[in-house]
Nucleic acid binder design. Structure first.
Lengths: 185, 185
DNA sequence: TCTGAGTGCGTACGAACGTACACACTTCTC
DNA sequence: GAGAAGTGTGTACGTTCGTACGCACTCAGA
């Protein structure tokens, strides 16, 4: 019977492995991500990875899914807190310029995810979900057309800026976002 | 003496290998790019790669450099052809919506390059050069502040759109670009 | 206390990889 | 025609990878 069910010794191990995976990807890229590096980063034995996951692809897919979920939540929280459109513009400006979203680690992971999604349909679906949710968060404050333009700005600006020497001009970002929001309704 | 200089049988071989490398990267990602796949795609023997290049990293670096140069030239040509700012806005709209720049293959390669540049300083420098050149092309028609915003749009919009089902709304893009250009000088 | 089912891990193996290198081939000089 | 020098390639080697799997361990039920 199923009664003799043992419980896992370390229930958080799966999540620790996924977090370690994201660290390895951010540091070495997907092309440098291996079972052994992940195990070393997470401090777990090599066999633990094949026990909890169905291969390296499965680990990477779940790691990206985990990242997408946590980013989606932060995104949603930042935008739903805004009472009106000017506040929403400020929130978007924070997302673009801020220290939370546009960290080097996050941007590196985002690039890796976009690149990997081109070759893995599961990650591609995860990515589409996250784009859909972020647009839904924007739609509370902006017209559908404005959403598309602002989404492009949120996407492109930090990515470009990551390769510049100087920090982003916050006033310029806010002015651009506001202009787009007003012009497109 | 150096007089007995033999000439290469196939002087275009290096370029064919680099083009094949880009094809392999677009199809399998950097993480799935190997000497053997490149050789197969280019139709050259395996030993030919180690003869012409100093390892796989060298091949990838030169392939990305080749891509950046050709894209930079197209970018420059599209923008210098525009006589005034409205024409430049149209050119930018074409870059974002067009069939030339925003192809699935090009976008996939761009993502791979951005991701790889985080872990390879040579490719990072190549990327910075290409960003500098594209901004210089924009600067012929727009203020420096407008350049930054438009650059972000060119970057972010096709990348987002690649994951949508429906094609881009050309009028929306043109209106956004024009609005940003006017508002920021 | 004994048993058995489920948990978790150390190790080993086949495959694929990057790279080196011995060797054929071609063309120029004498 | 003989030798030299540079071009290009087939193959083989050492390494590292992903993954499988036998085995130790733990505890619920009898």
């Amino acid at each position: 019977m199923g009664g003799a069910r043992r419980v896992a010794n370390d229930p958080l191990r799966k999540q620790r492995i996924l977090d370690a995976t994201l660290t390895v990807i951010a540091e070495h890229g997907v092309h440098g991500t291996t079972h052994r590096r992940i195990a070393g980063e997470a401090g777990v034995p090599l066999g633990s990875l094949t026990y909890h996951f169905d291969g390296l692809g499965d680990i990477i897919e779940q790691a990206f899914a985990r990242m997408a979920r946590s980013m989606s939540e932060r995104y949603h929280a930042a935008l739903t807190a805004a009472p009106d459109q000017p506040a929403a513009c400020a929130a978007v400006t924070d997302l673009i310029c801020g220290e939370e979203y546009a960290t080097p680690r996050t941007l590196a992971l985002l690039h890796e995810m976009y690149a990997y999604a081109n070759h893995n349909s599961t990650v591609a679906e995860t990515l589409r979900q996250w784009l859909r949710r972020s647009r839904a968060s924007l739609a509370r404050h902006f017209s559908e057309r404005a959403c598309r333009a602002i989404d492009a700005l949120i996407e492109g600006w930090p990515m470009h800026q990551a390769w510049e020497r100087e920090p982003l001009d916050r006033d310029l970002v806010r002015e651009t976002v506001t202009a787009v929001a007003q012009r497109l309704g």
